[in-house]
Design a protein around this nucleic acid. Structure first.
Lengths: 148, 148
DNA sequence: CATGCTGTGTATATTTACTATATACAGTTA
DNA sequence: TAACTGTATATAGTAAATATACACAGCATG
């Protein structure tokens, strides 16, 4: 085991849930926002990641370009690609904002479906609760009451 | 003579928020789910809607095909396109399911942003409340009296 | 009643934009 | 120089959107 061959991000499902380069973007954003890639960390090289994920170099490039545009990573020709110092914060900001947008859109859809404001809130809460049960967030201890 | 020239759905922003045909689909689903298009109502013709929205006939066709696949409308060659009898229910089902998916995805994003389960719920509630303030939903169905 | 007009939806070939690729080019450092 | 890194150009494949020509239903009319 020369180097940790730990696949930084899982294999991509070929165009199963969106463009490949966006799958890479989202997977890396997740790693960053959850603290597994602190600022300054060197990301895999274009060719390395491309080989691991069975995609072309260009696809990785597009993904990295997108991440750089969002201020999460930066690239240096001849040197490599690195996680920005403010990456975690930026990534979390982006994700929180995205979550807000999703909740907003969900509320609109539910309202258009004819649900009353109360019913919308109830629907949202049931989903959130179900999610919290299924997927314990990060490694922090949390007590889950199985009783619903 | 000309019928009500009321643009059934507003103008489309050229590829500003997704494919044109999906914008048409969503706009019509909204009209249906909110009760402004009861079952049996005749929809605008391909050419008429295409002209109003400044898109091609094919784009309208794709939109109507999608709506028919979801059981919201049905088409009759030489006659026209009509709102299904179960359209409102079907549309509301689809929208509710979509809302559920959006809430789920929002919860995931928020969790990945590092928010605690409690904070996620708080974020969601703040958004929902803000939405309810802006748009008094009041599931009060307006009686759309149809002239015989 | 047969006919043609005008409305409706339908089908095919084409253009355009985006995704993903292979291949060749350029910078950094031991 | 050698072996890494990121970069740029030209090339297929796919989906969205289009123009054009076709087929069916209703109605006015001779």
């Amino acid at each position: 085991m020369a180097q940790e061959r730990t696949l930084l991000i899982g294999p991509l499902s070929a165009s199963a849930q969106g463009p490949l380069y966006l799958q890479i973007v989202n997977a890396l954003k997740r790693e960053v926002s959850e603290g597994r890639l602190p600022g300054g960390t060197a990301l895999p090289s274009f060719r390395g990641l491309a080989e691991d994920l069975l995609v072309s170099v260009i696809t990785v490039k597009r993904a990295y370009e997108e991440l750089e545009r969002e201020g999460i990573i930066y690239r240096r020709q001849g040197l490599g690609t690195f996680v920005s110092e403010v990456a975690t914060d930026r990534s979390r900001e982006v994700k929180t904002e995205r979550a807000r947008g999703l909740f907003r859109e969900g509320a609109r859809e539910a309202a258009e479906a004819g649900l009353s404001p109360r019913a919308v809130i109830q629907l949202a809460q049931s989903v959130l609760k179900e999610y919290a049960d299924d997927e314990p967030v990060s490694g922090e201890p949390k007590h889950v009451r199985k009783r619903a």
